[in-house]
Design a protein around this nucleic acid. Structure first.
Length: 429
RNA sequence: GCCCAGGUAGUGUAGGGGCCUAUCAUGCAGCCCUGUCACGGCUGCGACACGGAUUCGAAUUCCGUCCUGGGCGCCA
């Protein structure tokens, strides 16, 4: 019976393990084969004078990164990594690895991100990289758990759409039989339609597509969006939820992934709630005193401005009370001052993580706002229709999964947070 | 879309007109080595993205092509 490497302890007497040959150190009469599976490392020690002939032959044949099965006696010893080693009685090469390897799993020599992504399957054998995706899995699980505990319905909406959701961003066009179609940039309109359907609380964790030709360490052309929408809720309610989601997933990662965090060698701290909240106007003031460029009320926050404010805040924070003019048409204006709306962004000191708002649920006001943005209500008919038949007030947000993981683990490049990133140039693997 | 920077063995690098028959590390192959943990020692293998130009001479300068990284704008 094969057991995981982490189950081989100083108490173990015999074991069968399967793993990859991580490193070989041949000292002559004595050879050490470091075996790796996803749970850890185990040293197989071969004493050449004593080992069976078949073990010697197989071991000689086993190149680095080959998959091997070893059975043998386990001995506790201070001299071995992990305090124990296996003395192979059988040694079988299950799948031999070619040499040279496309990159060095043992990380004696670094590899560039491009080389790593071209060979992601082998890059992901590195414990540090595997750790990222174990943590990402835990994050998604923590968030999903929280949504279910709070009574959300998990929905799946179409990624093939006929028109732009929000204007602004570029879309990937698609040949859809005799029609023109696009890959969806956001589930926004569909989430809102499900409010009209009376689902009250929905979430979706799914890909979004943006055809922007940017080339940065924080943009992807295919990203994963964590989206929620709640009826009878305002922007304050969903900001509270967002705070619970972020703190909740950090907490669960801290509890469940100590080994992965350790493998990554990072300082991991759960952020403290509540997150500070500053208004857009305050954010502009902070930026204005710390950066060179002219910035005034009504401008979008430039990258430099975002960074300056982030440095000042030093932790997660919300920016609230945005000018209606620079937020999407569906953001609800304040009743007493419609030039400001109930939209917010959740910021990490490094970058924006999420944006959300209470939405406009009144049909006529929505049409007005669509027109105010220079868009045509006719092309939004499928979206506007639900607003005429009993649309409850509602609010929601979208949170970028990759940015969440990237900032959580202090990754230098967002591509590190995706197994198979799609960027300006990369479509394979 | 705009603006930078860059492509040298499998990987990561040095070298910016002649000292280059191209450095170092890792890897791979062979030999030596019984407690390594970045094992060590010796020998060897393996590369200037492509095309053109300048020059007595180009990895190095220039032009073009292809590929890539990054910044900005926009966005999550």
């Amino acid at each position: 019976m094969r057991i995981p490497i982490s189950a081989v302890t100083t108490e173990t007497t015999e074991a069968e393990v399967i793993g990859w040959i991580h490193e070989v150190r041949d000292l002559g009469g004595l050879a050490f084969y470091i075996l790796r599976d996803r749970t850890g490392f185990l040293q197989a020690t071969i004493v050449k004078k004593k080992a069976p002939e078949s073990v010697l032959a197989a071991a000689k044949d086993a190149s680095r990164e080959s998959v091997v099965r070893i059975t043998g006696v386990v001995k506790a010893t201070e001299k071995a990594p992990g305090g124990r080693e296996i003395l192979p009685e059988t040694f079988e090469v299950i799948a031999k690895a070619d040499a040279p390897l496309p990159l060095d799993v043992a990380e004696k020599v670094p590899a560039e991100i491009d080389t790593r992504l071209d060979n992601r399957f082998i890059d992901a054998r590195r414990p540090r990289v595997a750790g990222i995706f174990q943590i990402r899995s835990t994050v998604q699980n923590a968030i999903t758990d929280l949504f279910f505990r709070e009574g959300f319905i998990n929905i799946t909406t179409s990624k093939i759409v006929a028109a732009a959701t929000e204007g602004g961003t570029e879309l990937f066009p698609l040949a859809y039989f005799e029609k023109e179609a696009f890959l969806n940039q956001s589930p926004q309109l569909y989430k809102q339609m499900m409010m009209a359907a009376g689902f009250e609380k929905v979430f979706e964790i799914a890909p979004i597509f943006r055809a922007e030709e940017h080339n940065t360490t924080r943009h992807l052309n295919e990203a994963t969006s964590i989206d929620v929408e709640i009826s009878f809720a305002d922007h304050e309610d969903v900001m509270d939820l967002l705070e619970r989601v972020v703190v909740g997933c950090y907490t669960k990662v801290a509890e469940e992934c100590p080994t992965a965090i350790d493998a990554m060698g990072i300082d991991f701290a759960v952020p403290n709630a509540p997150f500070p909240r500053i208004t857009y106007a305050e954010a502009i003031d902070i930026a204005a005193i710390s950066i060179e460029e002219d910035i005034t009320y009504g401008d979008d926050l430039s990258t430099a401005a975002e960074k300056a404010i982030g440095d000042e805040m030093g932790e997660h924070y919300f920016i609230t009370d945005w000018p209606t003019a620079i937020k999407p048409y569906y953001a609800m204006p304040f009743e007493d001052d419609p030039s400001v709306c109930k939209a917010f962004d959740l910021m990490h000191p490094r970058m924006e993580l999420s944006s959300g708002a209470q939405r406009i649920h009144q049909h006529d006001l929505l049409v007005e706002q669509i027109q105010a943005k220079g868009l045509s209500p006719e092309s939004f008919e499928f979206y506007l229709k639900p607003f005429r038949y009993g649309m409850p007030p509602h609010a929601g947000w979208g949170l970028g999964m990759e940015r969440l993981v990237m900032t959580m683990l202090d990754l230098p490049n967002i591509r590190e947070a995706v197994l198979f990133p799609r960027d300006r140039h990369r479509v394979t693997p």
